[in-house]
C-alpha cells in the first residue's frame, strides 16, 4: 500500500486530521479504561448479596457519569472531525450500537431506580444494572471485532466478533475487579481478587485474537508489523503486554494472603497492570489501523471536516481539556480511599 495517500503534513488540511485522530484516540482510550472498570463492576454484580452490591455500586457511584462522558466526547469527535466516517462506521455497526445503547440506558437508570423505586423492586433493578452492563460491554466487543475485520459480514467474521464481545466482557471484568480490590475491603475484596484472576485468561485470548486477525485481514497491516526493522522495533509492545499479564497474575496470587492480614501493599497493582494492558493493546491496534478509520478503505483525510471548523474546535479543546482533566482529578481525589455508602447531603 503506497504511503503517498498521506497529504502534505505541513498544511492544516494535512496535520489537523492527525491531531484530531489523536484527540479522539485519547478520548476513546479514556472511555474504555474508565467506563470499562465501572461496566466491569456491573458485570460482577450478579448473584452477590445485597450489602455487597451496595458497596460495589458505591465504589463507582461518583464516577460513572463522568466516565461515560468520554464516550460522548469520543463519538462526538468522530462526528465533528470525521463526519463521513461517523456515518459509515455507525451505519455498519447499527445493530451492536443499538444494543449497546439499550444496555447503557438500563445500567445508567438502574443506578437511580435501584434505591429510589419501591424496595421490593431493588432486586429487579440490580438485575437490570447487571444485564445493562453486560450488554453494553459485549456490544462494544462485537463492534471492535467488526471494526477489525473491516465490516465483512461472513459467518467467520460474525463468529469472530461475538468471540471478541465475550473477551471484552472479561477484560472489563478484569478492570472492574481490579478497581474493587482498591476500593473495597474484607471478604468482598478477596472475592474481587479471585474475579480478576479468572478474567485474565479470556482477556489475553481476546488480545491475541485481535493481534492475529488484523494482519490476516490486511496485507498492509501484516507488512507494518512483520518487516525488518519494524519487527524488532515493535517487539516491545507484545513483550510488555505479556509482562503485564505476568505481573497481574503474580500480584493476584500473592494478594489474598497479604490482604487478609490487613496489608494493602500492592492492592493497586492488578488495576494498574490491567490499565497498562488496555493501553498497549489500544496502541497496537491504533498503529495497525493508522491512517485508516475503516480498515484499508477510508483514511482520516478522506473523512475529515473542513480545516476552519477543525481549528475552532481545536482552540476550544486546548483551552478546556486541561480544565476538564483538572476537575476530574479533583473528583477522584475527593472520593479517594475505600468506598463508603453513598449518601446525599
Amino acid at each position: 500500500m503506497p504511503e503517498t495517500l498521506i497529504p502534505d503534513l505541513a498544511t492544516p488540511a494535512g496535520w489537523l486530521p492527525v491531531v484530531f485522530l489523536g484527540l479522539m484516540a485519547i478520548a476513546m482510550l479514556a472511555y474504555v479504561v474508565l467506563d470499562g472498570y465501572d461496566l466491569g463492576v456491573g458485570v460482577l454484580l450478579r448473584g452477590e448479596p445485597e450489602a455487597d452490591r451496595d458497596r460495589m455500586i458505591a465504589a463507582i457511584g461518583p464516577f460513572w457519569d463522568a466516565n461515560e462522558t468520554w464516550l460522548v466526547l469520543g463519538v462526538g469527535l468522530l462526528l465533528v472531525a470525521f463526519p463521513v466516517a461517523h456515518g459509515v462506521i455507525l451505519g455498519a455497526l447499527y445493530a451492536p450500537v443499538a444494543l449497546m445503547l439499550a444496555g447503557l440506558i438500563l445500567r445508567g437508570v438502574a443506578f437511580e431506580f435501584r434505591v429510589k423505586s419501591a424496595p421490593h423492586h431493588k432486586g429487579r433493578w440490580d438485575f437490570a444494572f447487571f444485564a445493562g452492563s453486560l450488554t453494553a460491554a459485549f456490544a462494544q466487543g462485537v463492534m471492535l471485532g467488526m471494526l477489525v475485520t473491516g465490516f465483512r459480514n461472513g459467518p467467520a467474521e460474525i463468529a469472530f466478533a461475538l468471540f471478541i464481545g465475550a473477551c471484552l466482557v472479561a477484560g472489563y471484568a478484569l478492570l472492574g475487579a481490579g478497581w474493587l480490590v482498591i476500593k473495597t475491603r474484607g471478604d468482598l475484596q478477596l472475592r474481587a481478587v479471585r474475579w480478576a484472576r479468572r478474567s485474565l485468561g479470556l482477556t489475553a485470548l481476546g488480545i491475541a485474537a485481535v493481534s492475529v486477525a488484523t494482519p490476516l485481514v490486511s496485507q498492509r497491516v501484516f507488512d507494518r508489523w512483520f518487516q525488518l526493522p519494524e519487527l524488532v522495533l515493535l517487539a516491545p509492545i507484545p513483550l510488555a503486554t505479556a509482562l503485564l499479564f505476568f505481573v497481574a497474575w503474580r500480584s493476584l496470587s500473592r494478594l489474598p494472603v497479604r490482604l487478609s492480614q490487613g496489608n494493602e501493599y500492592g492492592a493497586w497493582v492488578p488495576f494498574a497492570s490491567a490499565v497498562g494492558i488496555f493501553v498497549l493493546a489500544f496502541y497496537g491496534l491504533a498503529y495497525s489501523l493508522f491512517p485508516y478509520l475503516v480498515i484499508d478503505r477510508l483514511t482520516i483525510w478522506d473523512a475529515a471536516s473542513a480545516p476552519e471548523s477543525l481549528w475552532i474546535i481545536l482552540v476550544g479543546a486546548l483551552v478546556v481539556m486541561p480544565v476538564i482533566l483538572g476537575y476530574s482529578a479533583l473528583s477522584y481525589w475527593i472520593f479517594r480511599g475505600k468506598a463508603e455508602a453513598l449518601r446525599y447531603g
Binding site: D54, R55, A341, L342
Partner: peptide
C-alpha cells in the same frame, strides 16, 4: 442530612 442514597445501612 445523612439520608442514605443507595439504600445502604
Amino acid at each position: 442530612i445523612e439520608a442514605p442514597a443507595t439504600g445502604a445501612p
